[in-house]
């Protein structure tokens, strides 16, 4: 099939593609709004996601140099304040170096854009590039699970492909890169993935093949996942005849669902186009 020329791949869309082709088709090709409950308990999950978004904003503001006392006041009390305190105590963003918060990079692979939005890119004085991703979900996944996630594959890959725009035109080499996940609920835990030339070569070929394979599919080649448990946490379950109620949140795989959306949004601002 011919993919839309403006289709942009991200870790979210490629994760959907490998998890369930039908989900990818509905969500990213047809862009179908299907507002069922994603997971229960819905109110608690929403609170966590909103707090996660606020945490990401505080981290961004901190890197921009806003006074820490005012940010701490904004963090208030409770869960967000705990995360914020842990974040300050970690000292991760106080390391010397050039910092790029909330930075979007993109490259072209197999004729399509692939984008990554980094919570923080840190170019240390020793020419090392550290990717930080703040995680505010309930669970800290196993390292092996995380290693297979598209985010772990795509973020370093895009930095190699497009990092020159931040590096005075010089290439960023795989051996310079490290991918770090920092868990606000488990603040002593940072899970790191060093990167290498071999890993880069493998990852690039994998992503290229994944997109090329997608191009060969016909409309009817988007089957449902065989792992039915996933459907409990998918809004399209009613469309696919895969159940009624949303799953409750003790399934490790849904940890990602409870993160604030890292779906890349190109923030096309919208002024009210209405008549008064």
């Amino acid at each position: 099939m011919t993919l839309p020329s403006d289709l942009i791949f991200s870790q979210t869309s490629l994760q959907d593609l490998v998890d369930c082709r039908r989900r990818f088709q509905l969500r990213h090709l047809e862009q179908l709004a299907w507002p069922a409950i994603e997971s229960e308990p819905v109110l608690e999950n929403e609170k966590r996601m909103r707090a996660g978004s606020q945490f990401h904003k505080l981290a961004h503001q901190y890197v921009l140099g806003l006074p820490v006392d005012r940010l701490t006041a904004l963090a208030g009390e409770g869960q967000l304040a705990d995360w914020w305190l842990a974040f300050l105590q970690s000292g991760l963003v106080d390391q010397p170096g050039q910092k790029y918060p909330e930075r979007l990079l993109s490259c072209t692979i197999a004729g399509h854009r692939l984008v990554a939005k980094y919570d923080l890119l840190l170019k240390s004085d020793g020419d090392k590039w550290v990717i930080y991703d703040w995680k505010t979900g309930r669970y800290t996944p196993k390292r092996e699970t995380l290693e297979r996630r598209m985010q772990t594959i795509i973020y370093p890959l895009v930095l190699v492909e497009a990092g020159h725009v931040l590096n005075e035109g010089n290439a960023v080499l795989p051996s310079q890169i490290e991918m770090n996940y920092w868990y606000a609920e488990d603040p002593g835990t940072t899970i790191s993935f060093p990167y290498s030339d071999e890993q880069y070569t493998r990852d690039r070929a994998y992503i290229e093949n994944t997109i090329e394979e997608l191009k060969l599919l016909r409309e009817e080649d988007f089957p449902l996942t065989t792992e039915k448990r996933r459907c409990e946490y998918c809004v399209y379950r009613s469309l696919c005849g895969r159940g009624e109620a949303a799953g409750t949140g003790d399934y490790e795989e849904i940890a990602e669902l409870l993160e604030p959306s890292e779906e890349v949004e190109i923030d096309f601002e919208q002024l009210a186009e209405v008549e008064f």
Partner: peptide
């Protein structure tokens, strides 16, 4: 590698 953002 470039993407453009636009604003109102």
């Amino acid at each position: 590698t470039q993407m453009i953002d636009f604003l109102t």
